[in-house]
Amino acid sequence: MTAGLLARLRAPLAARADLGEALALGWVALSPAELARRPIRLDGRAAALGDLFDLSGEPRGRIRFEGDLRLADRLAAGLGEGEVTVDGSVGDDVGSGMAGGTVVIRGDAGVRAGAAAPEARRGMTGGELVIHGNAGPAAGTRMRRGLIAIRGRAGAGAGATMIAGTVVIMGAAGPETGLWSKRGSIIALGRISIPATYRYACTYQPAYLRLVLTRLHTRHGLPIKPRHLSAFFRRYSGDLADLGRGEILEWTAK
């Protein structure tokens, strides 16, 4: 990325960092110096974003993080605007409760990506969270709106208790995916174990999936193939132990 801000990690993280407040409020017009003053917590103690990162570039609505952020939690939590890219893996709770904007993780994400904060009723309520690697357990739990796309595997409970929104999993989906969901869509392009509380409805070609998958390919470079676009999907309705208005769409070669 050539335009926007660059946040380069000064030194490898030795303790967990909570970046939840760094981008939660409006940030797209902030200069590097202003953004450097945003509060974070490092190993439980108050700090500033600039204590961990060298910030440079021009505010253009984009920020790119460089460095090993596997111990950095809650990045882009509550995000409402702009585009956040991480050139590698990230810690837990990335995009927690985000309401808008785009988060792109070039590596893996920890637990609860795009999910609800422990005290919150809702996870993501908007925006797009794209994980080019694997996602830890509980991605998208209690999400209300928005799109999560996981190029690799998803841990257990992806989309569990989701209220609405869309979770696309290109790799294998872990157990209990979609459990207790009210509404929303889980798109499984890889292996998935359908919860017992979902019921098979039909095998068909949902037109809207072509829009979703085409966007993931053109906008985010995910390897969507013609076989995905022209495919049939097995539709399971669920979770019938809850509202039952959600769906799991399982890709099938037939």
Binding site: L147, S185, C202, Y204, P206, Y208, L211, R219
Partner: peptide, 19 residues
């Protein structure tokens, strides 16, 4: 579904789904 900022309606029909 909201896709790229636009809302689309999925209407179930006998054939499958109208978007």
């Amino acid at each position: 579904k909201v896709i790229d900022g636009h809302r689309f309606w999925r209407v179930p029909v006998m054939e499958g789904e109208f978007l």
